[in-house]
Write a protein that binds this DNA or RNA. Structure first.
Length: 371
DNA sequence: AACTGAGCCAACCGCCGAGAC
DNA sequence: AGTCTCGGCGGTTGGCTCAGT
């Protein structure tokens, strides 16, 4: 038993839509609104599958859609969200009014991915290539590193072959996207510490601060409620096999023009025990041994408390949770201290890693390293 | 002018969870 | 309870455009 099929798949038109077909859909929707898409082809007089009609409407005909190019602010937001949650295009598109998941996905695949690669940043991990190579070396040693970096090498070769002023150093371009925004947070964290190691610094190097004027506040609500998501983000491929169940989001805030970020960031945690639960997660997540591969977050500096709130993802299934750490817990304070670096700044740290990598992988950037 | 390859993007494919039957 | 479709999603592809040769 079950529902009857919506259409005869073998007997419907496929391919590009004609203006006449578009007009039929528009006329139908304006008269009847959006309802059961399986009935639309029949009622609108179209020889198309209902699913195809729905896609045409949602991706192209909807009156609220923008059809112009992406603004720099939109680019930044896409990059930051992709860094935080991976290729969850529908979610990213919801943060960009007038854009569809297909728009965002296409723009990422055709423009932004290449742009990041050209700038020396791996579009999957959003780390500088030099750092990834260094991580590979740390994990498995030089002997095995060539097998692990896979497609990375192609990106590096592309990056290295582009004669742009930017790539004279990996870092000269990095500030354009993340470093400017990261700077204040990074400096504050680093300034607050005295002893740390470079491994812990990797944790912080993944932190980012999203532009509060661009990203909508329900981002965190939606992200943290996506606990059952089955999407497989590339970003989590290196994640720890540990699996936790995350908690519901704590701040039920609806987008509003009068939204106050300070209030949002100072929002109390949702229920007794939440903080302790998150503490327990973070205690593991922030340990120097697993930190670089498990954190998946978009920390925000809480302006009121000086703590950091954000998003993390645990396990291969991409479960999300929120965290809040700072000066209220001894363990957290220690972790924060450990997470700071012995190097003087983020830029210095990257440069240090970069020159280290260049010294140990002399063949990679001179073109002789090939597949 | 003809050919070729890269870039772009609309549309399709296939999977999944929810829900209808 | 089991089977099937719907709607939503991310990944992939087909075909159009355009620049370079």
């Amino acid at each position: 038993m079950g529902r009857p099929p919506c259409c005869d798949k073998s007997n419907v038109k496929r391919g590009l839509w004609t203006p006449e077909e578009d007009a039929k859909i528009l006329a139908y929707v304006s008269n009847n609104g959006i309802g059961n898409w399986t009935l639309v082809p029949q009622k609108a007089g179209l020889n198309r599958c209902g699913k195809s009609c729905r896609l045409r409407w949602t991706n192209y005909l909807r009156p609220d859609l923008k059809h112009d190019g992406f603004a720099p602010q939109e680019e930044d937001l896409i990059i930051n969200l992709h860094k935080a949650i991976g290729s969850r295009w529908s979610f990213i598109a919801k943060q960009l009014p007038g854009r569809t998941d297909n728009d965002v996905k296409n723009y990422w695949n055709t423009k932004l991915r290449k742009k990041l690669t050209k700038l020396g940043i791996d579009p999957v991990t959003h780390k500088p290539f030099s750092q990834i190579l260094s991580d590979c070396r740390d994990i498995s040693g030089l002997q095995n590193s060539q097998n692990q970096i896979g497609s990375l090498n192609k990106n590096i070769k592309y990056y290295a072959s582009v004669p742009t002023p930017e790539h004279s150093s990996v870092l000269t371009v990095f500030p354009n996207t993340d470093m400017i925004r990261n700077k204040s947070v990074m400096e504050q964290v680093q300034d607050s510490s005295s002893n740390a190691n470079i491994h812990s610094w990797h944790c912080l190097s993944q932190f980012q601060v999203l532009d509060p004027e661009i990203i909508q506040p329900n981002f965190f609500n939606e992200a943290t409620s996506s606990c059952s998501s089955t999407s497989s983000s590339n970003v989590t491929q290196l994640g720890s096999p540990q699996s936790y169940s995350c908690q519901p989001s704590h701040a039920q805030i609806t987008p509003s023009s009068s939204f106050n970020w300070s209030e949002f960031l100072s929002e109390p945690l949702p229920y007794p025990g939440f903080q302790q639960q998150q503490d327990r997660h973070l205690k593991g997540v922030l340990s120097p041994t697993n930190c670089p591969s498990t954190l998946e977050q978009t920390p925000q500096l809480n302006l009121a408390t000086g703590n950091y709130n954000g998003l993390y993802r645990i396990g291969h299934e991409g479960d999300f949770g929120t965290f809040d750490f700072g000066s209220t817990s001894g363990d957290q304070t220690n972790n924060r201290s450990e997470a700071s670096s012995s190097v003087s700044s983020f830029v210095d740290a990257i440069l240090e890693q970069d020159s280290e990598m260049r010294a140990e992988f002399p063949d990679i950037l001179d073109g002789s390293f090939d597949y």
